[in-house]
Amino acid sequence: MDFTPIKDAMTSKSYGKIADVCDDLMLQVSTQGIAFEDEWPYTIHLLGHIYVDDINSARFLWKSIPPAIKERQPEVGAAWKIGQRLWTRDYAAVHEAIRGFEWSPEAQCIVAAFSELYTKKMFQLLLSAYSTISIQDTALFLGMSEDDVTNYVVEQGWTVDSASRMLTVKKQPIVTEQKLDPSKLQRLTEYVFHLEH
């Protein structure tokens, strides 16, 4: 079986394309009646869906994986553990699931990329949801130690109250749309009209 398209997507770090590449290839192989269960890169396929935050497709794929594969390939179960945590919105446990397994070199790349993406997503969630939050809670959400998370958020402009162990969130400035001057619009319209006639 030729897994070149999957390998190419992994090599180019096009992790956002992995799920689609795997889905298309699996469909092609299935329609040809080729038995592929033992060779299929289920871990990468699951992680591809998780990377693009398509947990429904990851669940469907997990349910379709033969039980014998799940038993023989513990990495497949470890990938699904991340998916389960996302499904139940157990945000802090996502980081535990990521760190709780010794990933193969192939999977390590996409897991590390997902971890970074997920941390940024959680940071944006905290940014939009809180004005103050404890260091401990922030560390859970971002999957870092309390010291690391304090350094991370201070770099983002947050402030720390050491006595209360609370962080004050620095909100991002709201970008307002620039209003178009009606006289400029009129001149542009006249100019375009002149060019056309």
Score class of each variant (00 low, 15 high):
Val111Glu: 08
Leu125Ser: 12
Glu106Ala: 13
Gln84Ser: 10
Pro67Gly: 02
Ser115Pro: 02
Arg89Ala: 12
Ala113Ser: 13
Lys121Leu: 11
Leu125Cys: 04
Ala112Glu: 09
Leu61Ala: 03
Ile98Ser: 05
Pro67Val: 05
Lys63Thr: 08
Arg59Cys: 07
Leu61Asp: 01
Gly100His: 06
Gln84Lys: 07
Lys70Gln: 03
Arg85His: 10
Tyr118Phe: 15
Gly77Pro: 01
Ile82Arg: 02
Asp137Cys: 06
Ser57Asn: 12
Ile135Tyr: 01
Ile69His: 00
Arg72Ile: 02
Leu127Ile: 07
Glu75Ile: 06
Gly83Thr: 13
His95Gln: 10
Ala113Asp: 12
Thr88Asp: 11
Gln84Leu: 11
Arg59His: 11
Gln124Ser: 10
Ser128Ala: 03
Trp103Val: 14
Leu127Asn: 15
Ala79Val: 06
Glu106Ser: 10
His95Val: 04
Gly100Asp: 07
Ile135Trp: 01
Ile65Cys: 04
Glu75Gly: 08
Thr88Tyr: 14
Thr132Pro: 01
Ala107Pro: 14
Met122Val: 06
Leu126Ser: 12
Lys120Pro: 00
Ser57Cys: 11
Ile82Lys: 02
Ser131Cys: 11
Glu102Thr: 11
Gly100Cys: 07
Asp137Ser: 11
Leu126Gly: 12
Ser134Met: 00
Leu125Gly: 11
Leu117Ser: 06
His95Pro: 04
Lys70Ser: 00
Glu71Cys: 02
Ala97Pro: 02
Ile82Gly: 03
Ser134Gly: 02
Gln136Lys: 13
Phe123Ala: 10
Ala129Ile: 02
Pro66Leu: 08
Arg99Gln: 15
Ala93Trp: 09
Ile133Thr: 05
Ile133His: 02
Ile110Ser: 08
Tyr118Lys: 12
Thr138Ile: 05
Ser134Glu: 01
Ala93Thr: 13
Leu61Phe: 01
Ala93Cys: 14
Pro105Gln: 07
Thr88Met: 12
Gly83Arg: 03
Tyr91Lys: 04
Ser115Gln: 15
Leu117Asn: 11
Pro105Thr: 09
Ile82Ser: 04
Ala139Val: 07
Ser104Gly: 10
Glu106Cys: 08
Ser131Asn: 12
Thr119Tyr: 01
Ser104Phe: 01
Cys109Asp: 14
Leu125His: 14
Thr132Glu: 10
Ser128Thr: 04
Ser131Ile: 09
Arg89Pro: 00
